[in-house]
Design a protein around this nucleic acid. Sequence first.
DNA 1: GCACAGACAGACCGACCTGTCTGCTATGGT
DNA 2: ACCATAGCAGACAGGTCGGTCTGTCTGTGC
Lengths: 197, 197
Amino acid sequence: MSEKAPSPRERSAAARARLLAAADELFYAEGVQSVGIDRVIEHAGVAKATLYSAFGSKDGLVRAYLEARHAATADRMARELETRYATAKERLVGAFEVQGLSFTEPGFRGCAFVSASADAPPGGVVEQTAADYRTWLHDLFSDLARQAHAKDPKLLAQQLVLLYDGAGISAWMDRDPGAESAARSVAAALVDAAVAD
Amino acid sequence: MSEKAPSPRERSAAARARLLAAADELFYAEGVQSVGIDRVIEHAGVAKATLYSAFGSKDGLVRAYLEARHAATADRMARELETRYATAKERLVGAFEVQGLSFTEPGFRGCAFVSASADAPPGGVVEQTAADYRTWLHDLFSDLARQAHAKDPKLLAQQLVLLYDGAGISAWMDRDPGAESAARSVAAALVDAAVAD
DNA sequence: GCACAGACAGACCGACCTGTCTGCTATGGT
DNA sequence: ACCATAGCAGACAGGTCGGTCTGTCTGTGC
C-alpha cells in the first residue's frame, strides 16, 4: 500500500491494459467477429466510453490485440532461442520447439492471425497486421538460414515456414501436440541437408 | 426446349442447387460469419422460405456447404491421383501437385475448413464437418503410405499432412503459389527416405 | 376442374451489434 | 478552493442478424 493514489495516467493505463487482456482472452478463444464490444468491456470491468477513448473503435482494439500478439510471440521466440540454443543452425530447429510450447497451453486455438484472417474483409486492419506478422515469420527463418550459411537460405526458409504453419494447423485442428515433434524431425533433416557445416 | 415444364421436384432441386452454389461462393469468399442469409438468397435468386424449407437453418446451409466442399475436394483428389500417377509412392508426392492446382485458381482463399473453424463455436456443425474432413485427409496420406510400404506409415502420413496444411496456409496468407513446389520437394525427400522401394 | 405442393416476394419480430451521449464520481494540478 | 481529467454506468440510436409468417402464383396429379 505504498501508493494508494493512482494518478489519472495510471488509471488510464490500467484500464487500457485490462481491456487489452480481456480482448486477448475473448478474441483468441472465440474469434474476433463472434465477440462483441459488450462482452469485452464486461470482462474487463470497464465502461464502454473508456474503450472508445482508448482505442477509438473496435477495429482499433482488434489492431492492438493483434499487434500485442505479434510482439509477445516475437519476444518469446527471441528470448527462448537465445537462452536455449547457441548456433543459428540449432535455432532453426529450435524454433519448432519454442512454437510447440504453446501447443500444450490451456486454451490453445492455433495461430491468432490465421483465425483472424479467416473472416476478415480485404484491406482491413486484420489483413495489414497479419501481413506484418507473416513478414516477421519469414524474416525469422531466412535470417537464421543466412546466418547458418545454408546453401539456399530463401528456399530453406520457405520450407521451414511451411512446416511451422503446418504444425500450428495440425496441433489446432487435430488437437495433436505431437505435431511439434513431427515438424521438428523434418526440420532437422532439412537443416542438416541444407547446411554444409 | 424439350421440357419447358419443370416439375416441382425439379424446381426444388434447382433452387437447392442454386442456394448451395451461392453459399459456396459467398461463404468461401467472405467467411461463414460475415455473410448473412439475405446475401445468400439474393445471390441465388431464391425466396427466404425456400432456403429454410431446404436446409432448415443457417447451420444446415453451412453444413451442406462444407460437406459439398469436402466431397468436391475428395473427388477431385481421387480422380486426379488415379489419372496422373500409377504408384502409391508417386501419389504421395502427387497429392501436393493436385493441391497446388487450386492455388492459382481465381478467388483462392485457403482451406475452407480452416477458415470456417476460426470463429466457429465449439460443438457446432463446423467443428463436426471439419473433423470429418481432417479424418479424410489423414486417411488419404496414411492409406497411401501403407500401400507404398513406408517404414513408418503413420509418421510419414503425419509429416505429409503437416506439409499439406502448411502449403495451404502459405499459399493463402502469403499469396505465394510457389508453396506448392516447396512442399512437393520436401515431400519427395520424405517419401524417398521412408519408402525403401 | 380442382385441390395440393412448393417457390416467390416481402413484411415482420426479437435479439444483438457498433458507436454516441448524458450524467455521476473521484482524483490531481494550480 | 476549483476546475480539468478520466473512469464508471447505462440509456439510446441506427443498423443487421437469423428466423417466422402471410399472402400470391404456377404447375401436377387425382
